[in-house]
Amino acid sequence: MAEITVTINGRQVSAKEGMTILEAALENGIDIPTLCHHQDLTPLGACRICVVEVEGSRTLVGSCHTPITEGMVIHTHSDKVLATRRMIVELLLASHCGSCFMCDKANICELRKIAADLEVGLPRFQMRKNYYPLEDISPYVVRDLTKCIMCRRCARACSEVAGHNVFAIAYRGFDSKVVVDFDQPIDKEVCRDCGVCISFCPTGALGKPREAKEEKRGKPLIITS
């Protein structure tokens, strides 16, 4: 693939044609936060956390799906970009259930990590939250869709990595939801124990059933003064 030259954050760097902006940035040691994106999955562009400024573009562009082209001038951490990312995280937190201290995945939650990195605290506005009953009848996977942020990594991982097709997206807008069959709780009939989706879920929406005495996963938070 042909080498191209682009400018990222004021520095001239080289990239290869066919790469996305995200890949090119990563290769040059620039870290762009992502949520719905995962290197093993087809880009979706849904969460918009990875947006960057490309000079000449009216809007910000999703770096996970936009091909990099010769001469692009890109800002990955401008004020505009950071403000946008912060507001998206604030929105996701505002409709999120927010019970981190009770969440098994709190210490490895990507949403929480990004919120911390971007210094987003408590949302400044109230929003409707989608509360769904906990789905814990399957011996292999527990779904708590109240914690779902609609990144669809589970659905893509199930079809693209595990080779199944258990999940689908139903309804529309704020009511949209990752469903199984006729929007019924996931059970052992439809899903085996491959656990692929669990490892792809960035939040606490998917987890393994907790056995008695099992410790919370992840490293404990170490508070330093």
């Binding site: 979706l44 562009g45 849904a46 969460c47 918009r48 956390i49 507001m87 998206i88 929105l91 996701l92 505002a94 409709s95 506005f125 109230q126 929003m127 409707r128 942020i149 609609m150 309804y171 529309r172 807008g173 704020f174 009511d175 949209s176």
Partner: peptide
């Protein structure tokens, strides 16, 4: 009501603004 719901800024943003 009419947002497709795919991207977060529109799905969550229209809901937040309406609220």
């Amino acid at each position: 009501e009419e947002s497709c719901g795919k991207c977060a800024p529109c799905r969550e943003g229209t809901e937040a603004m309406a609220g």
